[in-house]
Amino acid sequence: MSKAAGKLKSLKKNVERITHTTKLKTNIPAGMAAAGPPLGPMLGQRAINIAAFCKDFNTKTAEMKEGVPLPCRILMNSDRSYDLAIHHPPATFFLKQAAGIQRGTMTPGREVAGKITLKHLYEIAAIKIQDPPNALLTMQQMCEMLVGIARTCGIKVVRDLDPTEYAQFLEERKVIVEDQRRELLEKREAKMLRTG
């Protein structure tokens, strides 16, 4: 038994540390990286200095509007250093900003949450095509992809948009959104009563 225990101890000494070769993919709000969950535990599992990472990320995103979600790719090196790649905000963020809405529709295809023009779509495509995952796409492919994303958010792409008519549409839409929020809140409360 003692020979086996001795061999086991020598095996433990020979085992190397696990190195994470996959990239950590996460969305971090600009200028708001903090050591708390969910970011802190993800970095801690990969043996990255959390405080140094947060400081580095916040300085790199200092010129951006605070709170804008930024997709990040973090590649860990064996010497506990990391390579940080910060991409442009997600397409859904840009589309909702261009449409002037806070959230998309609950039933895509059946209701319209907002509208954008082709010019908005082209400008968003010009920004998003600069991201490394989209580098091999043509502008037409990028625009087609954005049209599909807009459709899933309930955003309609139109040629021309009348500002006064659209402002009236958004006012009508606010009432619908409030009704949907109230309905969701009632469902959540009913579920809490059933489980409590």
Rank of each mutant, 00 (worst) to 15 (best):
F53D: 00
L84G: 04
Q102M: 08
G104T: 04
T105C: 10
M106R: 12
L84S: 10
L75A: 13
S81N: 15
V68S: 11
E66S: 13
K65A: 14
F53N: 01
L75W: 01
L43C: 00
E111Y: 05
P71H: 02
P69E: 05
N49F: 00
A98Q: 13
N49E: 14
G44K: 06
T105R: 02
P108I: 10
R73V: 14
F53G: 03
P71V: 04
D79S: 13
N58D: 11
C54F: 01
K55H: 08
D56E: 12
Q45R: 08
C72V: 15
R80L: 06
A91K: 04
F57Y: 15
H87R: 14
P38R: 00
T92N: 10
G104H: 00
S81H: 08
K55R: 13
I48V: 11
L39Y: 05
N58W: 02
D79M: 06
K65F: 01
G100K: 10
P108M: 04
P69V: 06
I48G: 03
A85S: 13
G100H: 09
P89I: 03
M64N: 04
L70M: 15
L84H: 06
P108Q: 11
L95S: 02
I50T: 10
N58T: 06
D83A: 14
F53L: 05
K96N: 09
V68F: 00
A91W: 06
R80A: 05
F93V: 12
C72Q: 01
R73S: 12
I50K: 01
L70A: 07
P89K: 04
M76D: 01
L39W: 00
A113D: 10
R103T: 10
P89G: 06
L95D: 05
P89A: 15
Q45H: 07
M106L: 13
S81D: 12
I86L: 08
K96Y: 00
P71A: 07
L84D: 02
N77E: 07
S78K: 05
A99G: 11
S81V: 02
I86W: 02
K60G: 02
E63D: 15
C72I: 07
M42C: 08
V112H: 09
I74C: 07
H88W: 09
P71L: 07
P41Y: 02
A113G: 12
N58E: 04
K60T: 01
I86Y: 06
K65L: 12
